[in-house]
Amino acid sequence: MDNENLVIYIIVVLCLGAVLVMGREKVPPRLKRGMALTAVILIALAFVFIIYSLVA
């Protein structure tokens, strides 16, 4: 796995999570659940990639 792309992905996903947490009051209520679910999935995938890169 290309480590440079992995590091970029992890940084972008963690920034996305931070932006969603900080701006949660400004998001329309009907979009909150979908955006939160998307962020959780992306952050979980980033941690899976981190574990995979450490093991492989």
Rank of each mutant, 00 (worst) to 15 (best):
G34Y: 05
Y9F: 13
I41Y: 14
I8C: 03
R30P: 02
L45G: 15
I41V: 15
G23K: 09
G17C: 01
S53F: 12
G17T: 04
L37P: 06
I10Y: 03
A36Y: 08
L14M: 09
K26I: 10
K26E: 13
R30Q: 10
N3S: 15
R33G: 12
P29F: 11
V21I: 03
A39N: 07
M1A: 09
L42A: 14
A46Y: 02
I43H: 07
L54Y: 14
L37V: 09
V13S: 11
F47E: 06
S53R: 07
K32C: 00
V40N: 02
L37D: 04
I50Q: 05
A44S: 15
I51K: 08
K32F: 08
P28H: 05
R30H: 06
N5L: 13
T38Y: 07
G17R: 01
M1Q: 10
L42E: 08
A36C: 03
L20N: 10
V21N: 00
A46R: 03
I41R: 08
G17Q: 02
R33C: 08
A36I: 04
V27M: 01
V48L: 07
L37H: 06
L6P: 03
V27C: 08
F47I: 14
L6G: 02
L16D: 12
L45N: 10
M22Q: 07
V40M: 01
I50E: 01
V48S: 04
A18Q: 10
I43M: 09
L31A: 10
I41S: 12
M22R: 08
I43R: 01
I50M: 05
L14F: 06
V19T: 07
D2G: 13
G17N: 03
L45I: 12
V48G: 05
L16I: 11
V27N: 03
R24G: 05
M35L: 15
A56T: 14
L45W: 09
Y52Q: 08
L20G: 11
V55R: 09
L6H: 05
L6E: 06
L31Q: 12
A18M: 07
L6V: 14
K26G: 15
N3V: 15
V48K: 02
S53L: 01
D2M: 02
Y9Q: 11
G23V: 05
R33L: 12
V7M: 07
L6K: 02
V19H: 00
I51Q: 05
M1S: 09
D2C: 11
G34H: 02
R33T: 12
P28W: 08
A36G: 15
L6R: 09
V19K: 00
F47P: 08
V12I: 13
V12G: 13
V13L: 00
A56Y: 13
I51E: 02
L14H: 06
P29I: 15
T38N: 08
E4P: 05
V48M: 04
M22C: 05
L6F: 07
G17V: 01
I8V: 15
C15W: 03
G23Q: 03
N3Y: 11
F49C: 07
C15G: 14
R30W: 11
V48H: 06
A44K: 08
V13T: 06
N5W: 06
N5Q: 13
L42C: 14
P28V: 15
G34C: 04
V48E: 02
Y9H: 15
G17L: 01
I10M: 08
K32N: 04
K26S: 15
L54E: 14
M22P: 06
V19P: 00
